[in-house]
Write a protein that binds this DNA or RNA. Sequence first.
DNA 1: GATGAATGAGTTTTCATTCAT
DNA 2: GATGAATGAAAACTCATTCAT
Lengths: 224, 224, 224, 224
Amino acid sequence: MKSEDRQPRRYSSEESRRLLIEATLDSIVDVGFSNTSISEIVTRARLSRGMVHLYFDNKDALLVAAARHSAEVYYGTLSEQLKSAGSSPQAIVETVVLSDLGEDLLNERSIKIWFAFRGEAHANTAIAQYSDTRDDYLRDLIFKAFGEIAAAQGAPESEKVARDATHGTLALLEGMWTDYLLHSDSFSRASAARIIFRFLSALFPRYFNLNGAMSGKDLPCTSS
Amino acid sequence: MKSEDRQPRRYSSEESRRLLIEATLDSIVDVGFSNTSISEIVTRARLSRGMVHLYFDNKDALLVAAARHSAEVYYGTLSEQLKSAGSSPQAIVETVVLSDLGEDLLNERSIKIWFAFRGEAHANTAIAQYSDTRDDYLRDLIFKAFGEIAAAQGAPESEKVARDATHGTLALLEGMWTDYLLHSDSFSRASAARIIFRFLSALFPRYFNLNGAMSGKDLPCTSS
Amino acid sequence: MKSEDRQPRRYSSEESRRLLIEATLDSIVDVGFSNTSISEIVTRARLSRGMVHLYFDNKDALLVAAARHSAEVYYGTLSEQLKSAGSSPQAIVETVVLSDLGEDLLNERSIKIWFAFRGEAHANTAIAQYSDTRDDYLRDLIFKAFGEIAAAQGAPESEKVARDATHGTLALLEGMWTDYLLHSDSFSRASAARIIFRFLSALFPRYFNLNGAMSGKDLPCTSS
Amino acid sequence: MKSEDRQPRRYSSEESRRLLIEATLDSIVDVGFSNTSISEIVTRARLSRGMVHLYFDNKDALLVAAARHSAEVYYGTLSEQLKSAGSSPQAIVETVVLSDLGEDLLNERSIKIWFAFRGEAHANTAIAQYSDTRDDYLRDLIFKAFGEIAAAQGAPESEKVARDATHGTLALLEGMWTDYLLHSDSFSRASAARIIFRFLSALFPRYFNLNGAMSGKDLPCTSS
DNA sequence: GATGAATGAGTTTTCATTCAT
DNA sequence: GATGAATGAAAACTCATTCAT
């Protein structure tokens, strides 16, 4: 590193932590998890070598922090987008699906990061903790939504249907992410969404169609 | 070199290659991709350190061979199970789904291996080549099956439906694998299959129900 | 890592580089080029193993740096000794010859090093660059000196004579070095010098005799 | 190595030894001494790996045998060319000089080999034994020749002159070889020879001129 | 607090040598 | 005799971590 390239600015400890985490994620994206060394990270962060051990005890803790950060970004983004969603159950489901397939959450960088962490998760329990994007909170959220829809629709075994709808929707979202990872060039968000809504419209025809949640969303559930 | 320790050609070269590949996969399963060192591998294989460079040029080539082997096992197993499947399109689809969710293909070991390779794939193009389980061949196979079913069912836009069915089925399978990776304790094969067939029965109600392909499979497609 | 063994920055980076280079040269002298390993080097330098890769990227770069250093020492020493030489052409030639055969430049250590590098030069172009002791600069220096002498002496074909004198002198010096390498016990600097001056006095009898440059050096060239 | 490339012919043990030695020398020429491994050698020789240890105890013995072979080739060639030389002392000297500078002895391959062995010689006494091309036999031969010439010429201190002539001639030849090693593109055999004869003609003007030994060689030594 | 020189354990790789076949 | 698979010591190199500055 040439001295003219050095960062004269000092950062607050919070900024430095953030820079290191971002550099770690960048490195994972660019050279892969197993090639992500501390040298690689500090070079990208333009910070000194000792920083990593100053702010994180060791490399592993930095990796865990990076995984945690990724999870937080995922949830933060999703929460943000849910705020502006309608309050009907089908609107919530629609928002989850479309957010999960949207540019903000599903893009080359994030997808590489998620799969990198998942690939290492089983060898690192601390990372494992943060490697499940669609964890219990999200599962509960849409399970409740589907529960309401199923109950309103008056289907027999409504609980079972809601459970399958939840499981299936999450599985489809996961599957679409994998599809993006492996075939990012041919991937289509619209097509992915349509397929998920096809699944949902089959289960709940009054609430979803191929384009998402039905318009006049709140009405059908009460009409006969 | 201690002569008393010398191994007098215990294995054929093919066996040795196989042992090394299996040891590599075992190591990935047990300690993770990034902790899989040559020392780890040869200790597990109970072979000498030089073996790796004798049969594979270097570590990377061994990893690629292991990825390739995993892909071959996947396809070999699937092909085997397809042989004993019925010839109707819905039987083919059913077999693919049930095989893909069956003990042989979906188990803790294989799933860890697949996700480990996928996590590294983008940093290693040679591995990337083998990291897509459900590649074009499988996709074509079920696309053709769904095409026949959609045509027979006489639905409008049958090609589009077939495409969505293919995409959705593969995405669901991927999603179920991810589910198994992240929640292997609560995972249920039956439940996973039921959800997929729920999706398929919604698209093709005459050909699938929640239990799989309809019995009297070949008939419905021509009867009114 | 044992903290009690840690070396608290004993040397500046320049000193460490120098130590490694010297240890490399020592190793080449003692055990030969092909037995000079990094272990051998760092043991001799009493520095840590990682040092080599810290200051030099790799072993080869260290070897090249050592070759370069040797060349610099050669030229530095020669330049130094030329400073205190007379300014007449024959004084310059005399100084070059006597320096080149003197203890400073021609000794067991330096001669082993030179021949080791030359032996490897053709397989390593970076080393080749530094394996010619008597390169263009030195050649030009004495060629100019001989040119002046030949012109002053008024010999026919004075340029050709100067060229042969240059070539012959350098060849004799090279030959004497080889002689020293192969028969260091029986080698005599005086005898080597006398032979070279015998050659020069035959070509330029007014300027050299068996003992070197003629005294009253500047006079004869103008007297008849 | 593909089986179709294998040598089906078997060689006598003498042939195999020779093949290995030649392959060793080829390797030294092509990749240098320190990169000459047994693998490199047996690949070039198209012989099996075990051959080296069958015919030579170990790699070092093969290297020594190769050095020895090179020395034998040198002496064999020189002896051969001396046979067709005149019997006068100056004819002997001339033949030695011209042979030593001739294509047969002085060429890129042989020169690289000689310098490679010399570079390693001081670390390997067995090789050292064969690394002096112009050893005692040759030295004695030309010393005797110069002795006769000096005596015939009736110079004072004829023994000393003969010794210097011997030493100087050998040094010049060595120097010319080095010159060839380092500047093979600009090297001229004619120029090298001329310079040596310039040296000799200065010492023994009645016996040598710039072109070599004087014609009517045997006469001058007796005439006043 | 911040830095980056220094460390050496551990990694991948090379390779002379052995020896069952 | 010949072969080349097998071995493991030792090579070069990487890198997380330490700590004097």
